[in-house]
Computed example of a mutant assay.
Amino acid sequence: MRAGDSRGGRQIPSPCRVQGQKRTERQAMRASVRIGKTTAAMLLLAAVVAGCSAGSSRGPATSAARPPVAPALRGQALRELESAYASPDAVVRAHAMEVLHELALPDAAGPILAALRDREAIVRFAAATAAGELRLAEAREPLLAMINDKDANVRVAAIFAMHRLGDTRFSRTLEQTLTDPDVNVRGNTAMLLGRLGERSAVRILVPRLRAEREVRVKLQIAEALWMLGDENGLKMLVAASISRYPDDQMIAFTALAGPHDQRVAGHIVSGLSSDYAEVALVAARALGMVGRADGMQVAMKYVTAGDPRQRLLAARALGAIGRTDAQQALAGLLKDKSADVRLSAAAAILALR
């Protein structure tokens, strides 16, 4: 089935055509769709299978013709990342762990091992997840102890990491935590099952996708399924990408881009023209994740925004896009008064190629 084909008298919309519709028409379309409407998802899914025939005129996210990253700027970024390990803000410390595993820096082991002993559960969770993502063998002993951590989310991350290190003795517990009364535990379990990359998890995720009532968790389950290549997850994320709720759109854009499949770009690009700055910035980042620079102008627009959340999202978008001509803008954000904005800018600089 291809975008633009007619089935039963109904025209299947292509994301490329939807992007070109008048603003009022797009708003009406979004208002008419709810997450989980199978019909809308099936109609839009066709474009992922077929792809958009007209690609972005702005080219790929990176280009060899652009200037190299300045060594001095990279050094400043590394120092900012190092300072984040000891930040008084637990959220910043946790974010630093995410940066370490996303960039797979060669000296990541030391900070991650130290963070496994952090007093805050959010940091221990992020560190255990990073240890699993990077398969840090030296983390095996502390991770084994964390199987009995007082925080359920940390226990889930420790089980994930041990599984990634080849110890599957505790992995069946994730089937139980996927139905935990705590919404965060259910969501984190779904996310980490997707990151395990094992198709066997589809067997337990699909029934939970149908049974889950919390929208945020439902979308995390859909994200996990899409990471595992299952179309049940893709259908729900495509529907959520045109939800009338901005939060759902942002989750959907990032989740769709997770597997780095360029065919989903058509479902993300319309987000660049959202009335909500945060939605547009998340769409810009998601497009960067699939190798497109369509969101460069949007990201640059918010580098100097008054809202630190928007500056943070702008930095993350520029990092995902990866164009080295963003260095000057990121250098400015590296001096931001917000520690998390500075860390996001540092991560973006280190991601430039």
Rank of each mutant, 00 (worst) to 15 (best):
A130C: 09
A108F: 05
V206L: 03
L256F: 12
E223A: 15
S53G: 09
G306R: 14
R23A: 15
A317Q: 04
E120M: 12
D247N: 14
V183C: 08
V154T: 11
A317N: 03
L144F: 15
G9H: 00
V69W: 00
E120H: 13
A329T: 06
A345Y: 06
G110D: 08
R30A: 13
N188P: 04
P111K: 08
H260G: 01
E102S: 11
L343C: 11
G197W: 06
D149E: 08
A31I: 07
G8N: 07
R10S: 11
N232E: 12
E175N: 15
V154C: 03
A128M: 07
D336S: 11
T254L: 14
R164M: 08
P308E: 04
G36T: 05
Q249R: 15
Q327D: 13
A72M: 14
Q262R: 12
D180H: 14
M289T: 05
D167I: 05
A128F: 04
V92F: 06
A121N: 12
R208L: 10
L343T: 12
R353C: 09
R169S: 13
T24L: 11
A47K: 02
R213D: 15
Q76K: 15
R7F: 00
K301N: 15
I12M: 11
K235W: 03
M300W: 14
E141D: 15
G229I: 04
F253K: 05
A329K: 05
V238P: 02
R74N: 06
G258N: 12
F160W: 02
S57G: 10
D247V: 15
A28C: 08
R66A: 08
G187S: 07
A265S: 05
R186Q: 04
V202H: 08
G306A: 03
A331Y: 04
D180A: 12
R210Q: 13
R119Q: 11
G9K: 00
G295F: 02
Q220T: 05
R79S: 11
N148H: 13
A84K: 04
M227F: 11
S32T: 11
P71T: 04
E98M: 08
R34W: 10
G110A: 12
G266F: 01
E138S: 11
R79M: 08
V69N: 04
A317P: 00
D182P: 03
D182R: 07
E223M: 14
A317R: 03
Q249H: 05
L312R: 09
D294S: 04
I204Q: 14
G55M: 12
L209Y: 01
